[in-house]
Structures are given as structure tokens and as C-alpha cells.
Design a protein around this nucleic acid. Structure first.
Lengths: 111, 111
DNA sequence: TCAATACTTAGGTCAACACCTAAGTATTGC
DNA sequence: GCAATACTTAGGTGTTGACCTAAGTATTGA
């Protein structure tokens, strides 16, 4: 299995948490500092920062520090990798859906 | 946060493993029994079945047992939930990309 | 300069995950 | 009816994830 797989592992892992998905949604409207991102969540700062580290570790966001403020932003390139996998799967699933549906019709009736 | 979130948690969690993604890809070409699905993986059967339970638990696949053979199939409805979230995010990200790009141009140059 | 601000590091708990082996149970087919 | 087949259950190990508190470090501003 190629290296690509490792990227997808960590990207989907990152997307598997509601806090992190909410952060990504928030970053969709522009860069923001840690304190502002953390504010909506009832969580200790170090706990929140672990989420940010995971998002940054898999490349979904990046950050830079100016003075004592760290600002996070989306990193579109990595979002694209997850996008691409989903799109590939989607088209595959759609292509197969006809034959699948025929099968499902059979099995649905005996459930 | 709504219940919808819980579904996405488990769906993305399921997609975060290469074995499970490979199984989904394989099931794209039609239903298959456990032994056939497990065959490509160098893994003890009980370990493999844990993956299948996770896929079934979050609703990405379903199964039925006939005689001693359990057959798995894709469950398109749940795939759709993940699809929908990605599509929503995608359109949001795309809508924001212009203003984001302007910002990235600034920050990229000082890195 | 020194207190407040904005993270950051260290370290600890508890649950979930990803594996394993060993020993079941339920069908099938000779 | 009994061995082979196809899972299934039980139970154990090591790692990672998601939280916490406490105690740092680095800036900023009065």
C-alpha cells in the first residue's frame, strides 16, 4: 500500500472528531488565533491544542506565530487529498450502484 | 452539536484505516463473503472481523448470514452522509478560496 | 519592570483501537 | 456422523486518543 494511504489515514482520523471538524468549518471563513478558535469549546486549552496539533500534523491546517499569538489557517492542498479520495470512491460507488441496487432489492425484502 | 455529528464521527473513524478503506473499495464491485474479503490481508481472521464490525457498526456496510457464510455488502445510505458532509465542506472551502488565497499569498512569501 | 496575556510543556488517567492466540459453535459434505 | 469449513467468542497486549491539572516560557503594555 502506497504512502498516499498514510496521508488519508491521518486526514480521516482528523475528520473523525467533532471539535476538529468544527475548527475546520470555522477556518473556512478565514485565519484565526488559537484563543479565538478555542473559545467556543468547553475544554482546557492544552486539550484543545492537541486537536490543533493533529490538524496541523496531517497537513489540514498550518500556523504561524507572531509575537505571542499563533494564527491558524486552512491548508487547501491537503484538503484536496481527502476530497480526491472521496470523489474517486463516489464515482466508483455510483458506477456500481445499479448492480448493487438490484442486489439490495433482493436482500431488503427478506429483512 | 447534533446527533448527525455522532454518525460522522464513526464514519470518518472507519475511513481512517487502510484495511477498511480497501474493503469498501472491494465491496464497490459487489457483495462478498468474509473469507473472500479477508484473503488479501495478512491478518488473523478475528482481527479482520473487528474491522468488519466497525464498518457495520457505523452503517457503511451490512451483512447477512446464509448457512455458515456471512456476506457483506455496501450500505449506500450511510456513504451518502459522509459524501454530503464532504460536499458541503468542499463548496464552503471553494467559496472561501479567493479570500484565503489572498491571505496565503501574503504568508507564503515570508516562509 | 512586572503583571497580565497567550500559548506551551510535562505528565497523568481512562477508554478505544488494532492486533494476537486459543477455543468455541454452526454447517456442509463425504 | 464426523471431519472440514466458516466464522465467532473470549480474553490478553501494546499503542494511540482525548481529556485533565500544574507549571512552565515568551510577549506586551501600563
Amino acid at each position: 500500500m502506497p504512502n498516499q494511504s498514510v496521508v488519508l489515514d491521518s486526514v480521516f482520523q482528523a475528520l473523525a472528531d467533532p471539535t476538529r471538524r468544527a475548527v475546520l468549518e470555522r477556518l473556512g471563513s478565514g485565519p484565526a488565533p488559537v484563543s479565538s478558535l478555542a473559545e467556543p469549546f468547553d475544554m482546557a486549552l492544552p486539550s484543545f491544542l492537541q486537536h490543533m496539533k493533529m490538524l496541523e500534523g496531517c497537513g489540514l491546517v498550518r500556523s504561524q506565530k507572531t509575537g505571542r499569538v499563533r494564527t491558524y489557517e486552512l491548508a487547501p492542498a491537503t484538503l484536496q487529498a481527502a476530497e480526491d479520495w472521496m470523489a474517486k470512491q463516489r464515482s466508483m460507488w455510483e458506477r456500481r450502484l445499479d448492480q448493487l441496487e438490484a442486489y439490495l432489492k433482493e436482500t431488503e425484502s427478506d429483512q
